[in-house]
């Protein structure tokens, strides 16, 4: 029906179907996993790790996959990579296959939070530790996985708020571009930001709408904000860089200077955001680091050695603003 149907469950269905068709169209992906399985003979000496990834739906996730792959290479670990094409059931199958292949450890980026108990129990029964990356799962018994390696979205929101409070000297009207309603990063980044500005009486969120994590929608929402509250917006807080980049265009088209007339703060730290900061249009981005490879394999090696790990290994995120953007932009990997 409407454009914003994308918010509904239909989205995951359609994406699922899309990826399923891709899976049919690309049998090569499947074959590579299977042939790797055949080669997995007895007498393996190096560590073998299975990695079940959700898919490649964003550049963030592609960066995460590349980080885990290259880290496995550099540590001499054999990585069995399975792309689930956006479907949980493919991930469940991948875990079953990994167990049958007697891998030493499994890295899992779970598509959704629920429905993992049988797979995780099977892995535990086979004595294979499971390391979760970037998203958590809901299980009654948290000993089913070794550790979760993920960013703290609430802290990201709080860091954005603190940077903005300092920049605005504790006074100003902020409009918020939320992520997809109901998604964990949208909920937590909103909560963290509200906590962060609570200490400043002069800071107010005057408008808050969903930009659905998309550039185009972010731009559309910002255009509406600019029309309905002309001259009353001091800053934009976007739950991801893409929406902020869309908002920047809306601000420019309204004849204002983004980064100067209206301060723009966002989260993720993708390459385009750094370009925008160097150009002076984006003021600040809080990194949400997808380069989880080193942490993931540290955890794998510890778990295989029988060490107990903390349930949540928080990925350290940091704030980047225009003052450092030009220096670090060339070292950015995603």
């Amino acid at each position: 029906m409407m454009r914003s149907f994308r918010q509904s469950r239909a989205r995951s269905f359609v994406l699922g179907v899309t990826f399923a068709v891709c899976a049919i169209a690309l049998p090569a992906c499947k074959k590579s996993t299977q042939s790797a399985a055949d080669q997995n003979g007895p007498g393996k000496s190096r560590l073998v790790v299975g990695f079940s990834q959700i898919g490649a739906e964003s550049s963030w996730r592609t960066a995460e996959t590349n980080s885990i792959r290259s880290e496995a290479d550099s540590r001499g670990i054999e990585l069995k990579f399975s792309d689930a094409q956006g479907k949980q059931e493919n991930q469940v199958k991948a875990i079953t296959a990994f167990i049958a292949q007697k891998v030493d450890a499994i890295i899992l980026a779970p598509k959704v939070e629920t429905g993992w108990e049988p797979s995780l129990k099977a892995a535990r029964a086979a004595g294979i530790p499971v390391i979760l990356v970037d998203r958590g799962v809901q299980v009654a018994d948290d000993t089913l996985y070794a550790t979760l390696i993920a960013s703290d979205f609430v802290a990201e929101g709080r860091m954005a708020a603190e940077w903005l409070a300092k920049k605005l000297e504790g006074k100003g009207n902020i409009v918020e571009l939320q992520g997809t309603p109901g998604s964990a990063p949208a909920i937590d980044r909103k909560k963290g930001f509200e906590q962060g500005i609570a200490a400043y009486e002069g800071l107010k969120i005057t408008r808050s709408q969903t930009g659905e994590f998309a550039r185009q929608t972010g731009k559309e929402v910002m255009e509406a904000f600019l029309k309905s509250a002309p001259g009353e917006i001091d800053a934009v807080y976007a739950h991801n860089d893409d929406m902020a980049l869309g908002a920047i265009q809306a601000i420019e088209e309204a004849g204002l200077r983004p980064g100067t007339d209206i301060i723009v703060v966002s989260i993720d730290g993708v390459r385009d955001a750094f370009d925008a900061m160097v150009a002076g249009k984006l003021n600040c981005t809080v990194e949400c680091n997808p380069l989880l490879g080193p942490l993931a394999f540290d955890a794998v090696e510890k778990a295989v050695a029988g060490e107990t790990l903390p349930k949540w290994t928080v990925v350290e995120d940091r704030v980047y603003d225009q003052s450092v953007a030009a220096e670090v932009i060339d070292s950015r990997k995603y």
């Binding site: 029906m1 149907f5 969903t210 559309e220």
Partner: peptide
């Protein structure tokens, strides 16, 4: 009509939870 509805909702979204967007659209349609 559809686009006016979207823009109207966005222009009004002051203290309205975003989860209401779709409900309002559905009601108008």
């Amino acid at each position: 009509i559809i686009q006016t509805l979207s823009t109207t909702i966005l222009s009004f979204g002051r203290n309205m939870p975003v989860e209401l967007n779709l409900v309002i659209k559905a009601a108008v349609v």
